[in-house]
Computed example of a mutant assay.
Amino acid sequence: MSLASHGAIISLAAVILAAGPAAADVLAGSYGNEVGCAGVRLGYQDSDDYVVLTADGVETYGSGCEFAQRLTTMPGTQLLNSTCFAEGEEGTTTDVVKVVNKREDGFFVTIPGLEEIGPLKSCS
């Protein structure tokens, strides 16, 4: 690999890292249910009820989705292209995850094929 090619790869990586998570400007910090926020504070999860939402993705006890790209932004609603996994299933899927900010009522997350998850409140 030439020195110029190596420099181009480093520049591209820097641009990708600078872009940050797909939902960074919408979700600052961690949001969760009571069990999820307790897990954030303790640094581990130990209950089937665990749910945490961050700018990087949404995580439950046995599944989760990593946000890859924001597709649309409407007031209070984000549609995010995501890579999802579920415990007991092989591989990952690509899904569009919907995150809705209902202000005082918290955030609500919809992953295709699952019931809406929420309310998720700030863990701070």
Rank of each mutant, 00 (worst) to 15 (best):
M1S: 13
S2I: 00
S2G: 15
L3V: 06
A4T: 10
A4E: 13
H6G: 08
G7P: 05
G7F: 00
G7Q: 14
A8E: 15
I10K: 12
S11G: 06
S11A: 14
S11Q: 15
L12N: 10
A13P: 02
A13Q: 13
A14Y: 00
I16T: 01
I16G: 00
L17T: 03
A19N: 09
P21I: 00
A23E: 08
A23W: 07
A24Q: 11
V26K: 13
A28L: 04
S30C: 05
S30E: 15
Y31D: 13
Y31H: 14
G32R: 06
G32Y: 01
N33K: 09
N33R: 11
N33I: 03
E34I: 02
V35Q: 11
G36K: 05
G36H: 04
G36I: 02
A38G: 07
A38D: 12
V40W: 00
R41Y: 01
R41N: 08
L42D: 15
Y44K: 15
Q45L: 04
Q45F: 01
Q45R: 11
D46I: 03
S47F: 01
Y50A: 12
V51S: 11
V51N: 12
V52N: 08
V52M: 06
T54Q: 09
T54P: 12
A55F: 00
D56M: 09
V58W: 02
V58K: 05
V58T: 03
E59H: 07
E59T: 13
T60Y: 02
G62K: 04
G62N: 11
G62V: 01
S63W: 01
G64L: 04
G64H: 03
G64E: 06
C65R: 08
C65Q: 07
C65T: 02
E66S: 08
F67S: 10
F67V: 07
A68R: 15
Q69M: 08
R70P: 02
L71T: 05
T72S: 14
T73S: 12
M74N: 14
P75Y: 01
P75W: 01
G76L: 05
T77A: 08
T77C: 03
T77N: 11
Q78Y: 03
L79G: 02
L79T: 12
L79Y: 02
L79D: 10
L80K: 09
N81K: 10
S82H: 04
S82C: 06
S82W: 01
T83Q: 13
T83H: 06
C84H: 04
C84Y: 02
A86D: 06
E87T: 06
G88N: 11
G88T: 08
E89R: 15
E90K: 12
E90Y: 09
G91C: 07
T93G: 03
D95Y: 00
V96R: 07
V97N: 06
V97S: 05
V100W: 01
N101K: 10
R103E: 14
D105G: 04
G106D: 09
F107H: 15
F107A: 12
F108M: 13
V109F: 00
L114Q: 13
L114F: 04
E115L: 09
E115S: 15
E115A: 15
E116C: 04
E116S: 11
I117E: 05
G118C: 06
L120K: 10
L120T: 06
S122V: 05
S122Y: 04
